[in-house]
């Protein structure tokens, strides 16, 4: 089986005053293509930092990240941006839509950045907005949409570039349970349909249960790494 993501002895430290704070400590694992994986753990356990490192949003203090067979370490920030644009999708807890763009324009951004023909991109964006149930609201600005609607736009944006891997940071954390469930279903459906690998950070154990694999972090280290069929203790 192909590995879409490989982490090798990953460390991330921060300086806080005179102290060195180790947020991610010697983490290694491999992620098979097409699976869904939840990263769980208490607050401050390093979940979001690990997600950021895995997606190439941050540089590790030491260790290696290989995404879709590309080693991210030697890449510049702009080269990593290119990798993200081609292979990665994101969904954030705070939606992170560009407030000055309409829903459809927000969805179009990743493909437009590649320089693809505008008409085709718009068609594809509208298609995705239809799929998430927002076809009628494509010209609305984020401030004119509810939280759930904004997150649906974010999901559409995350899938427009047919990413190999989708990183989601507490995708339902800011939503009520009903809307949250709707978003979860949307992400899992698209994940299955597009064959995308899904990595999501969550506090929500019910959501984690729906994933093929659950990695539990504690104090910056892997506390447990459980596949649906077996359990491996780190």
């Amino acid at each position: 089986m192909n590995h879409i993501l490989k982490l090798n002895k990953l460390n991330r430290q921060f300086k806080s005053g005179d102290k060195i704070l180790t947020v991610v400590n010697n983490i290694s694992f491999e992620m098979e293509e097409g699976i869904s994986c939840a990263i769980v753990g208490p607050s401050g356990s390093g979940k979001t930092t690990l997600l950021g490192l895995s997606a190439g949003l941050d540089q590790p203090t030491s260790g290696e990240v290989v995404l879709n067979n590309i080693n991210l370490n030697p890449l510049t920030e702009d080269q990593r941006a290119e990798v993200r644009n081609k292979h990665v999708g994101f969904v954030f807890q705070t939606f992170q839509l560009v407030p000055t763009l309409t829903a459809v324009e927000n969805v179009m951004v990743p493909l437009e950045l590649r320089g693809e023909a505008s008409n085709k991109v718009r068609e594809r964006a509208l298609e995705l907005l239809n799929e998430v149930g927002l076809g009628e609201r494509s010209h609305h600005y984020p401030t004119q949409l509810s939280g759930g609607e904004q997150q649906r736009v974010a999901v559409a944006r995350a899938f427009i570039n047919n990413p190999k891997i989708l990183f989601a940071d507490e995708p339902t954390g800011n939503l009520d349970s009903e809307t949250g469930e709707h978003i979860e279903n949307l992400i899992f459906d698209l994940n299955r349909k597009e064959g995308t690998t899904l990595v999501l950070v969550t506090h929500d154990l019910e959501l984690a249960e729906k994933c093929d694999r659950v990695i539990k972090l504690k104090n910056g280290e892997v506390d447990s790494d459980v596949f649906k069929s077996e359990e491996v203790t780190a």
């Binding site: 949003l57 920030e77 702009d78 941006a81 290119e82 993200r84 644009n85 081609k86 994101f90 992170q96 839509l97 560009v98 407030p99 000055t100 951004v109 990743p110 950045l113 590649r114 944006r157 570039n161």
Partner: peptide
Amino acid sequence: ISTVAVLRCVGASSNQ
């Protein structure tokens, strides 16, 4: 800042 961060996230280069 957050707009730029999002754009950088989805692949915009620093110059863009």
